[in-house]
Design a protein around this nucleic acid. Structure first.
Lengths: 389, 389
DNA sequence: ATGATTATCCTCGTGACACGAGCATAATCC
DNA sequence: GGATTATGCTCGTGTCACGAGGATAATCAT
């Protein structure tokens, strides 16, 4: 309990605003079932708290004009970060979910210490600029994350890395600065579920093919993170041939059947050093090279068959496909469709969930990081700290 | 909103009581962080509402004695039903989650109409006896459930069956009688997560081997039901050999590698008409029959390998094993353990989630049905209707 | 232009919810 | 039998949210 309801209404309004930016006060009141009187009081309180401002809304028909809810110029912000193989992206998110000042920069060095150092400076600048307005630092990283720590990042060539070092500060000042670390595919799934191709889907499955395959199951826009936040390693389901050993240590991992390594195998070529780039190359060639096309077909079947199995298990309303997924499917549309239908339990074939391309492309993880950061920063517990600042 | 907080505290107390029956008022107040004053007021209100009674608690040390919260003798109840191949079970659950008058009866006939008819009478008797006290009818059924309807029940020999017919009543009277239908394995998973071997686990995976394999992933005691309530068909993940066609229409389903049919295949015998009974028989023989033991070993490996893959994906805190699962593991403990470890991503081998036997055995589904029924009946929305009766 | 219509905003009275402080009560411990 | 401890009870206070009724600002119709 502990004044559970204290920030409930405020948090609801902020969540609604995050779902669709530029909502008007009247729209939100309708959506949440607020009386106009309460809406008045609530928005006034939120203005007072420097959470939002209200500006006159463009008029659409009869009736007294309402206002659009917008982020307060001195309102809370979240620093979203994405960490990839060759570069990192940074952005500042406001309460409406919009990203500001987004930029991507190559790593100067890829050593963990150097990257952490660069991020530490970035965070430091953000704290200098935003002060107490900065409520959360949320990092999406192309790595396995376990209990908030990176345990392995093969594309980055990292082992265990503790990213909390990017905060550096005396713990006292960090009391109300949340720090979140999440897997990039997981966060891309969140982005799809909230503002992408799976918006409104209830249960949605997002899968992303890069080197191997990662993903995320979301329920009402929230990711299943598991006991240690390490859920989503879809590539290590044993959908493949038992005979193949995966670098992860297990056998028959799906990973090995759906990416550049699989394409090389089908083409009788040696396993590529850069499976992603190799896959892009083969996919391009497939347009007029029969052998490449055939290899893509085999991979498309492996991909679709696995997706069908996951649909059997999770019963998602929609499946979104990121990374190389759309290209693989496009390169062998018929094979993909047939393998998908073939892998479904008979009765699911009547109305199988659509498999659609992801909407956010390469910005999914960054956007997802922003969203979960805002979820935290605008949650009921954290609003108390904001008001007390 | 709509008076969102109105029943919040009451629902919290009831949820706490469901988590551990016989909790004292003081314990619950501590757990929920209530002040003693508010606890007094709240319990008084709940007594008034005929939700609970309070009886003097046995004294354990110094201090003023407190009271134990118990179901009110005229309080709400839920009718829980389990529907299986050969029989059905019925029980009445009170707000503390206890089951009363539990009994199991063989079907007189297995035709859907006959079973529905029998259940309709059972529900009718319960309504006569409990009147408005009956708040929900919650059915666990050994079948695929889609949008609240049975679409397929191979063990029962049913196709599509609409179980809402067990209610029969004029819709007017049913306004505040909830009707829930769920898959038996899903509900067994709920029971394990709430009051069984996975209590307190956050994310937990329950798997049950009977004919094929079903299961459920729970998060904080709530099952992932998917977009249509049809999640949990773990047996139809393509973990097996692509060459084997499953009766479900897909290929390589895990189902075919972990039950009596798999044992028969390994023993070179024809596929059994009753895979469950056949498996029980083989498992018994395995004690002194080397060939049977070897077959069990193969099945144990297939089971453990699949579980490892699912652990990779879902990152559960614990895996619970029901049905024939414990016996299969016991019959080939070493093979199981090795295959489990082998199938995990390397870093997960450091502290893999324990795989434990389910606690509820054959009563899991019934108990799970009771729990989800109570969740509904004691939820914030439904309490309003109870107070207004 | 002017009134009708419509949608929204604002004010105010009311009641429920929950906290906190202080006191009362009932057990054990010494 | 008093000290200690844990809990229950009473009461004053502040916050939350509803509902009714009136005010306001736009479009629509004539």
């Amino acid at each position: 309990m502990a004044s559970a309801s204290r920030w409930h209404a405020v948090a609801q309004v902020l969540a609604a605003l995050l779902r669709r930016p530029d909502a008007t006060r009247a729209e939100i009141a309708r959506e949440l079932g607020l009386t106009s009187g309460f809406a008045t009081e609530l928005t006034a309180r939120m203005r007072e708290l420097r959470l939002i401002t209200e500006v006159r809304a463009p008029v659409h028909g009869r009736g007294r004009p309402t206002t659009v809810l917008a982020p307060h110029p001195e309102g809370p912000v979240v620093l979203a970060v994405e960490l990839r193989h060759a570069d990192y992206a940074v952005s500042v998110a406001t309460v409406d979910g919009r990203l500001h000042g987004t930029r991507r920069r190559p790593h100067r060095q890829r050593r963990p210490e150097a990257v952490v150092q660069a991020l530490r400076r970035t965070v430091g600048r953000a704290r200098d600029r935003y002060g107490h307005r900065l409520r959360a630092v949320s990092i999406a990283v192309a790595a396995t994350v376990h209990d908030g720590r990176v345990v392995q990042a093969s594309t980055l060539g990292w082992g265990e890395v503790d990213l909390t070092a990017v905060l550096q500060d005396p713990p006292a000042g960090v009391r109300d600065l949340a720090f979140l670390v999440g897997n990039d595919a997981t966060l891309a799934g969140v982005a799809e579920a909230r503002t992408g191709a799976a918006t409104g889907a209830g249960t949605a499955l997002h899968l992303i093919v890069e080197v191997g395959i990662g993903g995320c199951l979301t329920v009402d826009g929230f990711p299943l993170t598991g006991a240690h936040g390490a859920a989503g390693e879809y590539g290590h389901l044993p959908f493949g041939s038992r005979g193949r050993r995966c670098p992860c240590g297990a056998r028959g991992c799906w990973d090995l059947d759906v990416d550049g390594r699989a394409l090389a195998r089908h083409l009788g070529e040696p396993s590529p050093a850069d499976p992603y780039g190799y896959a892009v190359e083969v996919l391009r060639r497939a347009a007029d090279d029969v052998r490449a096309r055939r290899a893509v077909g085999a991979v498309a079947r492996a991909l679709a068959g696995g997706i069908a199995g996951l649909v059997n298990v999770h019963d998602p309303g929609v499946v979104t496909l990121g990374g190389l997924g759309p290209a693989i499917r496009l390169g062998a549309a018929e094979a993909f469709a047939r393998a998908y239908a073939d892998g479904l339990i008979a009765y699911r074939r009547v109305a199988p969930p659509p498999v659609v391309d992801a909407a956010h492309a390469e910005w999914g993880p960054l956007r997802g990081a922003a969203i979960v950061g805002l979820d935290r920063a605008l949650g009921e517990e954290f609003l108390g700290a904001w008001a007390a600042r």
